[in-house]
Each structure stands twice: as structure tokens, then as C-alpha cells.
């Protein structure tokens, strides 16, 4: 197994931390993993993206130009990364704020109304966890259990009361895909 993923959106949408949570889950499952962010001041306000590679074997380049799966949260990122998805790959995107719908017939396209669902939940911070749930439903590279173990390990214990709401958000995200 080897999954090459890009997650891209606005800074502040939790792009980098979503990648980080995925990377920690891979660590929990004893998989090889790299997490390579676009770094710098553009993290706040501008676009941010992160490449996460999860694999059974040693990973060569942490920098990629083609991806198995893309999780896209804004129009700029969609324009940039839609052509970079390998044929047969998967695009997960939030239609919120997307005005040009993605059109490719050689990939699986999964719109996930995560922003809407976030409004329903009433906790903006669960946004990236909804999308992570959607990703794991479409591409089950790590288990939800591994995600939760990774979160528990990396969250300071004073934030452990947030674990439950995050787990719920992951399952809600999975349902958003299942509903399609």
C-alpha cells in the first residue's frame, strides 16, 4: 500500500493539522509516513497545502507532482491540484465556495458538504475532522481507531475532553460520503 495525498485550502482551515493527524494515525499503524507542508506566513490567510505520503515501504521523495488523492477546500487549490490527480485517483472537495465544478471522468470525484455540516454541529474547529472522516471513508488507509490513538497521544491532556467531539466529527464526515 502506498497513498500519496495532497490536502489544500486556505490557511486557518486546518489543512496542516489534518495532515498531521493523518500522519500520526499512520505512525500508530506502524506505516511509513512523510508530512511536508508549504510553510511560512502564507499559512494565515493565503493558501496552504500539505503532502502526506503513507506507505508500507520506505518513502523516497516527500515532494510530489502527482497524487492518488486530493482533499481540496478552495477554488485556487482545486485549479492547482485537479490536473495533478493520477488517473484512477480520488478528489474529495467541499463545494462551499467552489464556483467552477471539477470536471474529469478518469477520477472519482466526491463532493463533501463539510462546511454545511460544521454549521450544523456548531463547532468550526471540527471542519477538518469532518473532511478527514470523508477521506478515510473514501480511502481507508488508516483506521478511525488509529486516528483517535494518535490524537490522544499528541493532544495535551487538558484538551482530551475534545476527543469525543472530534471522533463524532470523523464519523459524521464518513456519513457525508456514505450518503452519496
Amino acid at each position: 500500500m502506498k497513498e500519496e495525498i495532497v490536502i489544500a485550502g486556505f490557511g486557518g482551515q486546518g489543512v496542516l493539522s489534518m495532515g498531521k493527524i493523518l500522519a500520526y494515525a499512520a505512525l500508530m499503524e506502524d506505516l511509513e509516513v512523510t508530512w511536508m507542508p508549504s510553510y511560512g506566513p502564507e499559512q494565515r490567510g493565503g493558501t496552504a497545502n500539505v503532502t502526506v505520503i503513507v506507505s508500507d515501504d520506505e518513502i523516497s521523495s516527500p515532494i510530489l507532482d502527482k497524487f492518488d488523492t486530493a482533499v481540496i477546500l478552495n477554488q485556487q487549490s482545486l485549479d492547482k491540484f485537479l490536473p495533478a490527480i493520477k488517473p484512477g485517483g480520488t478528489l474529495i472537495y467541499d463545494p462551499y465556495g467552489i464556483h467552477h465544478k471539477p470536471e474529469r471522468d478518469d477520477i472519482t470525484i466526491i463532493p463533501v458538504n463539510a462546511m454545511e455540516a460544521t454549521f450544523e454541529i456548531g463547532n468550526a474547529k471540527t471542519y477538518n475532522m469532518l473532511l478527514l472522516g470523508a477521506l478515510l471513508k473514501a480511502r481507508p488507509i488508516v483506521s478511525v481507531d488509529a486516528v483517535m490513538r494518535g490524537l490522544k497521544k499528541t493532544l495535551p491532556s487538558r484538551h482530551h475532553h475534545l476527543l469525543e467531539v472530534n471522533e463524532k466529527a470523523i464519523h459524521r464526515g464518513m456519513d457525508l460520503v456514505a450518503g452519496k
Partner: peptide
């Protein structure tokens, strides 16, 4: 380089 400094790995 900035790649090795900023990337996360095992």
C-alpha cells in the same frame, strides 16, 4: 535544507 527541516517523518 528547508524540506528536511520542515517535513515530519518517523
Amino acid at each position: 535544507d528547508g524540506v528536511v527541516g520542515q517535513m515530519m517523518e518517523k
